[in-house]
Amino acid sequence: MRRMLVRVVAGSLLFIPPSLAAAQWAPVEQVKTYTVSGSTGIELYSQIGEKGPLVGGQMRTIAHTDFKLLWSRNYQPQPDGSCKLVSARPSLTLIYTLPKAGKMPGALKAKWDTFAEGVRRHERVHGDMIVEMVKEIEAVSIGLTAADDPKCQKIRQDLTARLGEISKRNRERHRDYDKLEMNNGGNVHQLIFKLVNE
């Protein structure tokens, strides 16, 4: 229930030791909501189908985790003609879109609260996966060196290729997780079942 948007910006920073750099960043979280209403679980779920986040311009979903990722990177030519990436600092914003319900009868509210909390926890796992991906990118980036690269061009191509592989694995992780959660008997499937059945 998430899609990704990556924006990468190359820049420069003063040298920061890798251990210190890794300890200094944390993701920023934004939560967006859309409102549904109804007097039954089926009505609420029907509203989700009408108002939920539109993913890929084609399909509505219950919730959505997106992110914006910016990088400040310091490439430094070395005396031997190589280039080294001495620091790579991420700026990560996680963007959660979640359903929010208006007023409803007390018994339905209890069911909705269980559903909404389960959806929030599901999306939080997607957020954690994104953070793990960024940490992997950081680990691969800092200290990366390219020989015979005085203008620091080869190293950028090398890094781009490595990031492509990391991104591909990340997308597969998210797909596998959603498949597990949405399949018959999965956590999200059970949340929906309990909401719509009286």
Rank of each mutant, 00 (worst) to 15 (best):
H64A: 09
S37N: 13
A26Y: 04
T33V: 09
L44P: 01
I48D: 00
Q47E: 15
G57S: 07
T65S: 07
E43G: 01
I62S: 01
S37L: 05
E43V: 12
Q30W: 02
G49F: 09
S37F: 14
L54F: 11
M59F: 00
A63H: 00
K51M: 13
E50V: 14
G41L: 01
K51Q: 12
P53T: 06
Y34C: 03
G38E: 08
T35N: 11
V36E: 00
Q47P: 03
E50M: 15
P27Q: 04
V36N: 00
Q30H: 12
I62Y: 05
I62A: 03
I48V: 10
V28H: 12
T65C: 07
G41Y: 01
T40D: 08
L54Y: 04
S39W: 12
K51V: 09
Y34L: 04
K51A: 11
P53E: 04
T65N: 09
A26M: 13
L44T: 02
S39H: 13
G52Q: 00
Y45F: 15
S39G: 10
G56N: 14
Y45W: 15
G49M: 05
G56Y: 14
Y45G: 05
V31A: 14
Q58L: 15
E43W: 02
K32E: 11
I62N: 00
T65R: 06
M59G: 03
H64M: 12
I42W: 14
V55R: 01
S39L: 12
G52P: 01
Q58G: 13
I42H: 08
E50C: 13
G57F: 14
Q58S: 13
I48K: 01
L54G: 05
Q58T: 13
T33Y: 11
R60K: 06
I62L: 09
G57V: 06
I62M: 07
Q47L: 01
P27D: 06
E29A: 08
L54Q: 02
Y45I: 09
H64R: 06
V36C: 02
Q58R: 14
T33F: 10
T40K: 07
I48G: 02
V31C: 10
K32W: 05
Y45H: 11
G41S: 05
V36W: 00
G52M: 04
G57K: 05
G56R: 10
